[in-house]
Structure formats: C-alpha cells, structure tokens
Nucleic acid binder design. Structure first.
Lengths: 242, 242
DNA sequence: CGGGAAGTTGAAGCCAGTCAAGATTTGTGG
DNA sequence: CCACAAATCTTGACTGGCTTCAACTTCCCG
C-alpha cells in the first residue's frame, strides 16, 4: 500500500527542508499514486510526452541522452528524493531518457494537474523552482568536471559527490554505501572511455582513496578524494522535497 | 531613461511567449530599474550573495566557473532575454560568476522581492520555473556535447546553436550575426584548448560551413553544420521572458 | 610607435581512446 | 545443480586526437 506523504521516510533526511503539515496535505492530494518498476525499465523516453511526473522514493536510476552515433551521455544519477520529469511538465516533450538502474518505487504525479497545482500553491511552486535551480547548479558542476578535469580528478570528484549525496539521504553506513551502477555508466557520465575509467578507478583504489566493487562504494579517505578532485568545499544545502 | 516593460523590444521576438497586459504591469512593478555596464564588468561573482536579479536586455555576456588550478569552464553564453541570477534568488550564494563580454544593459529586479513576487503571481512564478527548466535542458545539451562530441562536431554544434539562438532573437541579418567573444571563450565552453579550437575553426572555414572572424559569425551552410554536429533537429520552443 | 591582447601556425609529447583477449560474474535453460 | 551464454570487469598494447610549448603575426589603444 502506498506511503502517505506525512509518513514519507525521505522527509526525515538531512538533505531536505522541513515542510508544514498543510503543505504535506496539499502534496498528498497532488500525488496520483505510487509506482514500482523493475531494474532496467525505461521510465521516460527522449521525445516522448509523459503524462506523469515522479519523485524517486527508493532505488536508483539515471538520466541520459543518446547521440546519432550511439554514444550516450549520462546527465546525472537519480537518487531517492529526486524529482523527475519537470521538463515534461513544462515543455512539450522529454529531451532525455530516464531509466531505472535498480528496482525503484516512485511517487506519481499527474502532469495535467501540474499547472493548477502550481497556481493554487505558490509556496510549493516556489519549491519546484528551487529544485530546478538546484538541478541547474549540479549540471553546471558536472559540466565543469567533464570540461576541465582530467580523468583522475574527474573520477575523484564523482565519487566524492556521490558519497556526499549518499550521506545526506542516509545511504551511507560506516564508510560505505550501495552503489549499483556499471563502470560504463560512470564512464558515460564523465565522457571517458570504459577502459580508462576502469584503470583510473584502479589507481584510486591503489591510493587507498576509494574502492568501488560489488556494487558497493567505499570511501577510505574523503579528504584525499577532495584533494585529487580539486574540490574546495562542498555544501549540500537543504532543499525541498516534492 | 528606462524602458517600460510594455515597450520591451525583446517581447516581439519569435523566441518568447506572449504575455497578458496585466502580467506585464506586474513585471513592471517588480522591476527595480535598469543598469548599464561596460564590457568586462563582473556582474555576479562566485561565492557572492547578490541582492539583485537581472534580465539581459542588450549585449552579451558569459557565465563561468573557475577551478583551483585556474582553469575555467564557461557554463553558457548570455544573450538578450536571458534571466540571470536565479540561483541567488533561491540559494544562499552564486555558484558561478557572470561577466559582461560587451557593454550590456540589464533589467534589475530586487532579490528580496522575489519570493513575494512569486507568491502573489503564481502564473509568473510558473514562468520562472519554465525558464529554469529550459536552462537545465540546455545545460544537458552542452554536457552531452562536451562529454561525447569530438572537437569538430562540438564546434559545429556550438556554432549551429548560437546561430539558431541568434535567429530567434533577431540578431541575424542575412547569413551573419555579431558574435563578439574570444576564441578562448568558446574553447573554455567546450573543454578544448585554445590552439585546437583555433585549428578546428579553420577546418570549418575551409569546409565552407561557417566562418567566425572580426566578431562576426557567418553561417554559410547550416545544414552542413548540423550534419557535422550530429544534430537531428533543433526546435527552439518559445519560452517566457521575465 | 611601443606594448598588450587576440589570433595563427608548426612541432612534439601525452592523456585517453580503441582494439583485443582473457577473467569473472550473472543469468538461464536443461 | 550443472552447462552454456551474456554481461561486466580487467589488463596489455597500440594509436591518435588533443594539449602544450613556442614563435610569429595582426590589431588596437594609449
């Protein structure tokens, strides 16, 4: 049976801003239902016009775009709490695809309700803008990594950010978290080849900075990662959860 | 003397969605003033906490981030009609810098009014979300280019997009538009070295696809550009103008 | 007319891509 | 529960696109 927004387990996490009870009720009304999908399912497809918006409750996925020659750019990884499909809510069609990497459960919202929801709940509308701004910010970070960092710093940056994100939503236990992607996924996210990604991950392992094996990411020395990645400081500011 | 929103010359351009008269009046009230800056001015600085939001009325600029080792990633170019500073409006501080490449004039909005404006004008709030989603979309495109396309297609993609954008806001006359950036700017936007950018631009020139000289971009064969860039189709959907 | 910024061009070297093959894991049907 | 196939991960060797270095040109502004 579907989770009530008021019982949403995500809301307790450090990453998210507190919300009033009445706002939660409003969201609850906007929520059309819950959906469970198997690993490998394509949630949204480039060029399609989905009638639905989602929030990831559980599981992980990824957003990507494909070029004519078959190459794939992973735009970002999707973690619990991520809002999916804003583009479809506002534009004519999706410009990228979204795929479930693991089994996932998602909150489902009705796209046709979106505008009305927005108009009748300006505060929550503001939160959605906030989310969009945060997404834009992260894309800028990623772009900077792909454009300027070499393989080693790029991977260090990626693992560092992922781990930080994992901490913020309570996925980290001790010094490790579940991280069920393929090396190819990370390679496609950073614009690197699979082979080079593999070898560079090996170097990070040899440096005792981080090891990623068997779908588990273990960060042994996060400061070292930050140093390799040329990260000055990361502040994951709290943000709204829809 | 400051332009009235009702006379805003940008609004007539194909790129922007029509807005009701009452909405224009609302925007006019939100508008705190107009600002003119010289080429080279830094409008917003990474880490700062600007009290203002802008819309570019005239002139061009760029958004960028710098890394510890001095390398710079140009996040995107700023053209007339672009809304600047949403991050500051919603987050604690700017995560990138914004610089005027040419002399610019900008509409200025008061950041402290932002939330109130949003709440009392949900329709316009929706438009801002729309803008954020569009920005996110373009960043995804850029990321895909930087991550997956090689130098030749990447530059073809960039020139194609820029020209398309120029057409949409009426900057193109005949087959050319003013394009007053340095090669270094484009290099930093695409994650390429200046030297390689220069040589690749030369190739595009030899192919009679596009030439960029003396701050003027001339597109001789846009289809050829699209082909080199592996672009299937570009649709610049109309979007709101704040 | 001198100096700095931007653009151009050639040459050398390296980071990362590509190719290829084997090891390991995972999944599946008999 | 084994056997085979498919996917993923590893590793080595070769190649090449791009970076870096360096010098020279052109343009502009004081």
């Amino acid at each position: 049976m579907a989770t009530k927004c008021s019982n949403c387990p995500l809301r307790k996490k450090a990453l998210f801003t507190p919300v009033s009870k009445s706002d939660i009720q409003t969201m609850q009304r906007f929520k059309a239902g819950e959906m469970t999908v198997e690993a490998g399912t394509t949630l949204l497809m480039e060029g399609s016009n989905s009638p639905q918006l989602f929030t990831a409750l559980n599981g992980m996925g990824l957003r990507y775009k494909t070029l004519a020659d078959g190459s794939r750019q992973v735009i970002n990884l999707i973690f619990p709490g991520d809002f999916i499909g804003l583009q479809a809510g506002v534009m004519k069609e999706m410009k990228h695809s979204v795929e479930a990497t693991t089994d996932m459960t998602l909150c489902v919202f009705d796209r046709t309700e979106f505008y009305r929801f927005f108009k009748s709940n300006p505060e929550l509308g503001f939160d959605i803008t906030w989310l969009a701004a945060v997404a834009e910010h992260f894309l800028g970070e990623t772009l900077t990594t792909v454009g300027q960092r070499k393989a080693m710093p790029a991977l260090a940056w990626a693992l560092h950010s992922i781990f930080e994100r994992g901490k913020a939503i309570g996925l980290v236990r001790g010094n490790q978290m579940r991280f069920p992607y393929r090396q190819q996924d990370l390679a496609d996210a950073l614009g690197l080849s699979l082979v080079h990604t593999n070898k560079t991950l090996g170097k990070l392992r040899d440096l005792n900075a981080a090891r990623w094996e068997d779908s588990k990411l273990q960060v042994l020395d996060q400061d070292k990662l930050a140093e390799i990645a040329m990260i000055d400081e990361i502040i994951l500011e709290p943000r709204p959860l829809m």
